[in-house]
């Protein structure tokens, strides 16, 4: 079941950056890439729960600020020799508005 919610305007998220959506249980990081694609993942690195929203965004990846794990924003999976996965939420932009599917 899908449950699309409005997050805000694309302009509110810096290019190559991220903003945080707070929920009761956990935070979701919404990312905007250099090419204005948007992605949303649970704001917790599979390694030590570092806040991915605070990482450096490059290509469709983010590097966690705590120990440099790099996470694919498309799959939520850790890249390279690291193994682990964080939850991914569907995200899209419609007429400048960012939406994510809380499922």
């Amino acid at each position: 079941m899908s449950n699309w919610i409005e997050v805000g305007q694309l302009e509110e998220i810096p290019k190559q950056g991220s903003r945080v959506i707070k929920t009761n249980d956990f935070n979701i990081a919404v990312f905007r890439t250099v090419n204005d694609e948007v992605f949303a993942v649970k704001d917790a690195c599979p390694h030590k729960q570092g806040q991915l929203s605070q990482g450096i965004v490059h290509d469709k990846k983010v590097t966690c600020p705590l120990h440099n794990w790099t996470i694919s924003l498309e799959s939520g999976e850790a890249l390279g020799p690291d193994e682990g996965c964080t939850n991914v939420f569907m995200a899209k932009v419609e007429s400048g508005l960012v939406l994510i599917d809380l499922g």
């Binding site: 509110e12 945080v20 959506i21 707070k22 929920t23 009761n24 919404v30």
Partner: peptide, 12 residues
């Protein structure tokens, strides 16, 4: 200012 504020709060 965006650096220090969340973009949205949702209750699930």
């Amino acid at each position: 200012p965006h650096e220090f504020a969340s973009i949205k709060v949702v209750s699930l």
